[in-house]
Simulated assay, not measured.
Amino acid sequence: MTMTILALDLGTTTGWALRDNDGHITSGTEHFKPQRFEGGGMRFLRFKRWLSEIKQSCDGIDCLHFEEVRRHASTDAAHAYGGFLATLTAWCEHHGIPYQGVPVGTIKKHVTGKGNAGKGEVIAAIRARGHAPADDNEADALALLAWAIDTQEV
């Protein structure tokens, strides 16, 4: 039996890729944009509930990898990322799921050969591996999953 791995590109539009214990890979994006009349923490509660739904749908997660971002386009993006990261790590700790952040350059270098590859190059590399990502968020999650499968002996 294969380990179940969840790979996440955290953000308001979170890209995700999951390899289940049968080796089947699914992926997509989930949107956590703040809604008009909800408080600031509600997006993170919706994210936490979504994580639990994913975990339940595949009978548990053996390990989780997330894209570790060091630079953000704006202060708002940095704050959102911090909130998603705090929610994610607390959720993983609560459920006893090992987690690891992987630097963006490491992921890009693995799938494209270049640590500074652009969004289009990552998408093309993921398509060449037989996937059809809807956007760069899903492509990033699939790239991270490929890195985890190829380098982490899982």
Results as ranks from 00 to 15, higher is better:
41 G>I: 09
86 A>N: 09
40 G>P: 06
136 D>G: 07
17 A>N: 03
112 T>K: 06
13 T>N: 06
130 G>D: 10
151 T>I: 03
65 H>A: 11
63 C>N: 01
81 Y>V: 04
97 I>S: 07
111 V>S: 04
125 A>F: 06
3 M>K: 15
42 M>L: 13
58 C>F: 10
130 G>T: 11
82 G>S: 12
31 H>E: 05
21 N>F: 03
26 T>P: 02
18 L>A: 08
7 A>I: 09
99 Y>F: 13
132 A>S: 15
92 C>F: 11
13 T>H: 08
86 A>Y: 03
144 L>R: 02
103 P>A: 13
23 G>F: 09
125 A>Y: 06
152 Q>V: 05
89 T>F: 01
19 R>K: 10
149 I>R: 10
64 L>G: 02
47 F>P: 00
97 I>A: 05
11 G>W: 01
130 G>K: 08
88 L>H: 03
135 D>R: 08
77 A>I: 06
53 E>C: 07
33 K>W: 01
83 G>R: 05
69 V>N: 11
58 C>P: 01
10 L>F: 07
79 H>N: 14
10 L>E: 00
99 Y>Q: 07
18 L>M: 15
54 I>C: 10
154 V>I: 13
3 M>V: 09
130 G>Y: 13
103 P>F: 10
39 G>A: 14
109 K>V: 14
27 S>F: 12
47 F>V: 05
20 D>P: 01
49 R>T: 13
28 G>F: 02
118 G>H: 15
123 I>P: 00
120 G>K: 09
41 G>M: 08
106 T>I: 15
16 W>K: 09
114 K>C: 11
97 I>R: 05
86 A>L: 10
94 H>M: 11
34 P>Q: 04
2 T>K: 14
114 K>R: 15
29 T>Y: 04
108 K>P: 03
3 M>G: 10
75 T>Q: 14
55 K>Y: 12
58 C>I: 12
133 P>R: 02
23 G>L: 05
122 V>A: 09
6 L>P: 05
2 T>G: 05
94 H>E: 13
33 K>D: 04
18 L>D: 02
20 D>R: 07
135 D>S: 08
49 R>S: 11
59 D>K: 09
55 K>T: 12
152 Q>P: 04
7 A>S: 11
14 T>S: 13
24 H>M: 10
33 K>A: 11
33 K>F: 00
138 E>V: 10
105 G>T: 08
123 I>A: 12
29 T>M: 07
50 W>Q: 06
41 G>F: 08
5 I>Q: 00
55 K>R: 15
140 D>S: 12
65 H>C: 08
75 T>C: 08
99 Y>T: 02
127 R>E: 15
113 G>M: 11
38 E>R: 07
58 C>L: 03
118 G>L: 09
56 Q>K: 15
79 H>T: 14
106 T>E: 13
72 H>Q: 14
52 S>T: 15
15 G>R: 00
52 S>L: 15
36 R>C: 05
43 R>E: 01
92 C>H: 07
72 H>R: 08
128 A>M: 14
19 R>L: 04
130 G>H: 12
89 T>L: 14
22 D>Y: 04
152 Q>F: 00
141 A>T: 00
66 F>R: 03
5 I>R: 02
130 G>E: 12
